[in-house]
Write a protein that binds this DNA or RNA. Sequence first.
RNA 1: GCCCGGAUGGCGGAAUCGGCAGACGCGGAGGCCUCAAAAGCCUUUACUCGAAAGGGUGUGUGGGUUCAAGUCCCACUCCGGGCACCA
Length: 822
Amino acid sequence: MGRPFDVKTVEAKWQSRWFDEGTYEVDNDDPRERYFALCMYPYPSGAAHQGHVRNYTFGDLVVRYQTMLDKAVLSPIGFDSFGLPAENAAIKAGSHPRLFTEERMKELSSSLRRLGAVYDWRREVFSHDPEYMRWSQTFFLALWNAGLAYRAEAPVNWCPGCMTVLANEQVHADGTCDRSGDVVIRKNLEQWFFKITDYADELLTGLDSLDWPERVKTMQRNWIGRSEGVEFDLPLAYDPSRALRVFTTRPDTGFGVTCAVIAPEHPLLVELTTDDERERVLELVERAKSESDLERTVSTEAGPGLDKRGAFTGSFVVNPFTNEPVPIYVADYVLGNYGTGAIMAVPAEDERDFAFATAHGLPVVRTIQTPDGFEGGAYTGDGVHINSGFLNGLGVDDAKRAASEFLEKNAHGVSKVNYRLRDWLVSRQRFWGCPIPIIYCDDDGMVGVPLDQLPILLPDDVTMDKTGQSPLATHDSFRHTTCPKCGKPAYRETDTMDTFTDSSWYFLRFADPFTPDRAFDPEQAAKWMPVDQYIGGVEHAILHLMYARFYLKALIDLGIAPGLAREPFARLFTQGMLRIDGAKMSKSKGNQIAPEQYYETVGADGLRLFHLFAGPPVDDVDWNDQTEEIIEGCGRFLDRLYRLSHYDDVNFHDAPDEGDLDVRRSVHRSIATVTECFEKWMYNIAVAEVMSLLNTVSKHARSEHGVERGTLDEAIDVLLKLLAPMTPHLSAEIWEERHPDDSALHAQRWPVADPSLVITTTVTMIVQVNGKVRARLEIDPQISESDAHEAALADETVQRALAGASIKRVVSRPPRLVNIIV
RNA sequence: GCCCGGAUGGCGGAAUCGGCAGACGCGGAGGCCUCAAAAGCCUUUACUCGAAAGGGUGUGUGGGUUCAAGUCCCACUCCGGGCACCA
């Protein structure tokens, strides 16, 4: 397309200027009000793709807008540079992941600059920087010393594709790996964990204060999964001095217990199993062990096969409510690592128990009166208790209280809160991550690497193993070391940390990377934290966003980050994703649309404008045949702006008249609208408003009568300021042409609407007859109810519509409408 | 199965304090400019009946509340996302 200016030259000029002059560098002692704007730590996968463009366009808009509001805006950037893709690529190419990663970092940096995104590059951070690793390892040791990092054997998720264990959060509900999509298998391994469960309660309650999308908060709440209940004893029938301990959230249904069920991993299982039942029980236990979670996670619907998922142990416990013996079953639907690994089963009021009981021919005893017409198995709603001794007649809540008291007195009952959340598994059997700074000594056991020996760096002389096994595990000079305590030969830990540990504190480093010999100065960090606006994809709703919340709380409690707000991200925005033919646009699917081609035509400005205009930022964007044309349209808008600002085809007249005043009103109303839209993330509407204003001004200026010079200049300058955060290059260029002696556009203040020009002097009132619009009247907004009524009736078209019919009623709602009912 | 979103012209989407449905843009149609084209500019564009004036119908479906419903209530359909044996 032929454009009235050279887009590449203009954009290159301003990009160099912002970068070379450090326009968006900000000092920690800046006295202005502070604003911390942050896009999620990007993984350096090479040149920016459209998803990045969208994300960083939003981020850059926030930075530039807040800057124009005269705030000290912290806009940092860095790279989440450890991770599997680099490692896999290095394996393929036979190189080192570092070389590969640094190449990709350069590409991503320059494509962010090409987009016109502005940062304080002095604060750049990347995870594999030795200085960053030093602090990652320091923090690991601090967590370890405080007991928040520990090593334990547990059944863990192993991804055969990634050749490493994964955290629970990285495994989908269907048992597949979040990264590779492989089916995850369960292994018993000794691994490193962070004790995130210590913070379960705060992670839950802290959500309330956050200005985050409700669905993200809901997802975190569900993931944490708090449940209140009672833990109590079911005495063993053959030895009442001992008991099976169970957890329930429904103590009120105790009279309906018809069996107890324990997990295949339960420590008492062997003892409880009688000779007669041993064969079937062992078979079930073996199967539970070998099956993947995918196979084990089948829904608990009654049907063929369900009976095989549980077996009678041959033993009984006594129900403390009824003093009757009930059989103990083992079943894989009861989890070994939740609650006590054993439950009381109440088929009448729990769907899983109902399905299980039905499959095994166990009785169903209702303890809550079902509503009339209730059909089906378990009834989980509220109701009056029946068949329940002292609980009869009570509702669920009252019965829960009474039953809990009973259990406290008679069955060692204690109220207990359980969480679904498990500790964060942080060790990975991979090379390209931050090494865990622990040494194993035969005499001293686990010993932390002394702080003055940090960072433990990854060796350069490695051959990436085609099998995917980490070369650290077999790297002799890395593995062999001496014990810091006794000096004897010892081994290093060869696992590395989950890369989510790196992204759990990078924002603190951004706040202060300047203080020597410290990860950050807490006083400096406290000035910026929490992040005022965090921007990223919803795919991190649980993973990164929960880990970072935990990590910051832990660092504060360990005295590393005293004085900081306990929540890292005050306000979160999650943008929609890009789809192409309904599928997610992604590198792995190979369906990405590169941004570069658009820089040649509409420029970064045009592409940015498209992303802002395409629809609400939260919504997904479907990239289709029409998209190209919309992008072209965004380019055309910028051309029209350029022409108008050069007075193409404009006619002038001298003194401002009523028409000019109307233009000024439009200008000021647009200021108000765009400002509001920016605050509410309604960027698509902000763009529409600016387009609309340009149309209004152009039309007026190009009319035969023309425009008064000062009025047009004000309109153009306001347009440039409103567009400055959206299309920064061209706006800055035009501004400079028009104001060669003034400071640059981005140093200008955001415009403020003149209230006297925003208020409307006349307004259109609609007149309806029986709810149908029959006339539109220009009236004074202050018009009284009766005047509005009269004006409506006086109108000719209204009279024609009434056609003499008798008026039953008039609804007068000035200044919006009058509705006449006949 | 449960929990959240969402459904508006040919298309992306506006309009949430119940008060002009379709802002803005894309696409289409017609015109101006031009030897012609591109670019640009102007007009028009929900559907439908009508030559026109004018009328009727319209926000996934079916009901309801109201003078008035895209917006509120009830029931449902479809699409997207999250969770899915956590006792």
